[in-house]
Amino acid sequence: MDHDPEPPPAPSTAPRDGRDSRWERHREERRAALVDATIRAIRTHGAGVGMDDIAAEAGTSKTVIYRHFDDKAGLYRAVAERIDGRVVRNVGAALSRSSTPAADTRELVASTVEAYLALVESDTEVYRFVVNRPLVDRPLADDPVGGTVDQVTDQLTGLLLEALRASTTDPSRARTWAIALVGSVRAVADDWLATPEGDRAPRASVVDSLTDLAWHGLAPVLAPTTTTTTS
């Protein structure tokens, strides 16, 4: 049975010393290792993985896991934050590829949708674990998924505001559009994964469909000065 060492005793009024710092570092490393083990267990057993499977993968006991995360919700939150960090990085990288979003916003939308769906498809069971929350039996006050959606929405809002600078469109609409875009991509991704793999549309087709929908709504207001005159 795996047993973590107890932290060194320290007087409540004493300043932090080297032992405290080493213990904190040990705890962070141990927590990271347990999150790694949980993700491996999810990939092996699927999104409905149980705590016994996670403990076996980690080579420890459920008691030790709870010592580091308090409860199942704490472990779920740590895994969700790890995966959501990947989402933010991947989508953020796609959003940052264009320094002049108004010039080619359609390509920007397409690359953003592609970045999200590629991550979802490459780690399907882990994504389902984060979205479906099988370990959580109560609402979370600090929902990590909601925080990630907000970060991506903020990034997209900034780019849309930049694209609207030369437009007469009310800039307050940028956030509304960003929320709609992020929400639609997430909803489509959830439905796409729920479809049996043999009946599932190719990722490229889904990316094209979402991009077309977004672009036909955005193009008229992002490029208001481009008009075609016929004689």
Rank of each mutant, 00 (worst) to 15 (best):
S21C: 13
D170H: 14
V185Q: 00
N132I: 12
D84A: 11
H26Q: 15
A219Q: 15
D104Q: 08
G48S: 13
L222I: 10
D2V: 11
T211Q: 06
A189Y: 01
T168R: 15
R77H: 08
R19C: 15
R43T: 11
P8F: 09
T63S: 13
A93F: 07
R86F: 07
D70L: 04
S122R: 13
E81C: 03
T211W: 05
L119T: 08
I54P: 02
T226I: 14
R43A: 09
R203V: 04
N132H: 13
L34G: 00
D212Y: 05
S96M: 09
S209N: 14
L117S: 01
S122I: 07
W215Y: 03
V120G: 02
V206L: 06
D137Y: 05
T229H: 12
P15M: 13
T226F: 13
P9R: 11
V79T: 02
E125T: 03
R16C: 11
L117N: 02
V64N: 04
A141T: 00
T225M: 11
A115V: 10
T226L: 12
R19G: 14
R138Q: 11
D36F: 08
A214K: 00
K72R: 15
D154K: 07
R16T: 07
E121P: 01
S99H: 15
K62W: 11
S61A: 09
D4H: 09
V35C: 01
A102V: 13
R16P: 05
D84H: 07
V130S: 00
A33S: 10
R173P: 04
S231Y: 10
K62C: 08
P5F: 02
D53G: 04
I54T: 03
T112L: 06
